[in-house]
């Protein structure tokens, strides 16, 4: 362990009289602990407050102060949010829109990244630049024509507009990132495979794709959160209540019950937070596993 920013204080130890140094070190530890405690509090307290409040009854919301704890622990608010609030249905819709989009983004994006970075042809740099435009330009610029196209093609009233739009808007970043990852792999790897009799398509599928597996995982994760948390596209292209995704449903949650039904609303938010937390814990382990595996192979 090397010294850091706080190194000079350690040097004080050689000075006569250890007491001031010890006091200073103590003060430093205290500042550090206070800082970390404050940080943890600021991050965790709002979430904890919401989870605890989700068990309160309507009367408790109205009469007791916000920091009071619920008198009884029941899951009434949760069942109410899931069935009457249709959160269950909205989660199903979100899954039906997210999973196909994600699969398409990965398949098309990785292949395009390979074609643009590993394959050699004139104009490939220009095509990559054209994909870059898609990262910069805001979605507002494509909404209105798409709305018209989907309407006239009779796709409104299904989840297809969402899947098509998510796939297309997810491609630019994916193509760009995959091209960057393929840049790190020497072309000779693929050329060697073709000498052994494979076509370049087989080389891509059997060698290229597995080689960038970890990168694919990262890209898929980023895109999953983009799509799952999207509001703008989902709001624009879902005109029917039964097609709402989680975000649109949550936004309209208050409207459905009127302003007063706090318990189910807090429960609905908590379902979203807990779902994210479960996924987050699972991913964390996966990332740590990936990191250690890489380190062992070294």
């Amino acid at each position: 362990m090397t010294d850091t920013l706080t190194a000079p204080a350690r040097g004080q130890r050689t000075e006569p009289g250890p007491a001031p140094a010890r006091r200073r070190r103590y003060a430093r530890h205290l500042t550090r602990n206070l800082l970390v405690t404050l940080l943890v509090l600021v991050e965790a307290a709002p979430l904890a407050w919401m989870l605890l409040s989700s068990f309160k009854t309507q009367a408790e919301f109205v009469n007791d102060p916000a920091w009071s704890l619920p008198a009884h622990w029941g899951f009434g608010n949760y069942t109410d949010a899931w069935t009457n609030g249709h959160i269950g249905l909205y989660i199903r819709n979100s899954l039906l829109a997210t999973v196909p989009s994600l699969a398409l983004i990965i398949l098309l994006g990785v292949a395009a990244g390979f074609a643009l970075e590993v394959m050699i042809w004139r104009g490939r740099h220009q095509v990559l630049l054209v994909f870059l435009i898609g990262i910069m330009v805001p979605s507002q610029m494509i909404l209105l024509p798409l709305f018209r196209i989907y309407f006239q093609a009779g796709l409104s009233g299904t989840l297809l507009p969402l899947i098509i739009t998510y796939t297309a808007t997810g491609l630019p970043l994916t193509v760009f990132m995959m091209a960057t990852y393929f840049r790190a792999i020497p072309r000779e790897v693929f050329e060697a495979a073709t000498i052994d009799g494979a076509t370049i398509l087989q080389a891509f599928w059997r060698i290229g794709f597995p080689l960038v597996r970890n990168a694919v995982f990262t890209v898929a994760l980023v895109q999953f959160f983009f799509i799952w948390n999207d509001l703008l596209i989902a709001m624009t292209f879902t005109n029917d209540d039964s097609l709402r995704t989680v975000q649109v449903g949550l936004l309209n949650f208050t409207g459905q019950y009127g302003e007063t039904s706090y318990g189910p609303l807090f429960a609905a938010i908590s379902i979203n937070v807990l779902g994210a937390l479960g996924l987050y814990l699972a991913i964390n382990q996966r990332i740590i596993k990936g990191l250690t595996a890489g380190a062992v192979k070294g």
Partner: peptide, 26 residues
Amino acid sequence: VLGDRRAIAVLLGPALLLYTLVMLVP
């Protein structure tokens, strides 16, 4: 081998087509 036009079309075609139709044209 790395300049195989048919392979490039197969790999890049779908992504470029979708991107063009759903983003560039709009």
